[in-house]
Amino acid sequence: MTTGARELLETMRARADIDPLANPFVAAVVEGRAPVASVAAFAAEERHIIPSDRRSFLLLAARAEEPVAVEFFTTLAQGENLVLPMVSALAAGAGMAGPALAAYEPQAGCQAYPGYVAWLALNADPAGAALALVANFAAWGGYCAALAGALRERYGFDDTSCAFLDFFATPAPGLAEQAVRAAQEALDAGRPLTHARRYARLLHDVETTFWHTLAAVAH
Rank of each mutant, 00 (worst) to 15 (best):
T194C: 00
A44C: 10
L58D: 08
E65T: 15
F42R: 04
C144R: 08
A215I: 13
T170M: 04
V87L: 14
E207C: 02
P51R: 15
S88C: 01
Q107H: 12
A92D: 14
V70D: 02
A14W: 10
A182G: 05
D53R: 14
S88V: 00
S38I: 10
L193S: 07
F164H: 09
C162R: 15
V70S: 04
A89S: 14
H48L: 10
F73P: 09
E185Q: 15
Q78H: 04
R54H: 06
G149W: 10
L202V: 15
F72K: 10
S52H: 08
L101M: 02
F164T: 01
H195W: 07
Q107A: 04
R197L: 14
P171I: 02
R181Q: 14
A62W: 09
L175V: 04
P24N: 08
E71L: 09
V70C: 06
V134G: 05
L131I: 02
V70W: 02
Q107P: 01
A196I: 11
A61Q: 13
G149R: 15
R13A: 08
V217T: 11
A145E: 12
D53C: 11
E46W: 05
A130T: 12
F72R: 10
R63H: 12
A150M: 07
A22Q: 13
A145R: 15
W119G: 02
S161I: 00
R197N: 09
R15A: 15
G156S: 06
A16V: 12
P67L: 02
A37L: 03
A37Y: 00
V87A: 01
A145F: 08
A182N: 09
N81P: 00
P106H: 02
Y155H: 05
F168H: 15
R15P: 01
V26M: 01
T2A: 00
P85H: 03
A27N: 04
T160E: 14
Y155I: 03
A22K: 13
A182P: 11
A146Q: 06
T75D: 11
V26Q: 06
W140E: 11
G142F: 05
R6H: 11
D166E: 15
A40T: 12
A163N: 07
E153R: 15
I50S: 04
Y199F: 11
E66S: 12
L187T: 05
Q178L: 09
A146P: 11
T74M: 01
L101E: 05
R63C: 10
R154L: 04
F157A: 05
E71G: 10
G98R: 11
A112G: 06
F164C: 03
A37W: 04
E7Y: 05
A22C: 02
Y199I: 03
L58H: 07
A77P: 03
L133R: 11
D125K: 05
R152K: 15
R152A: 15
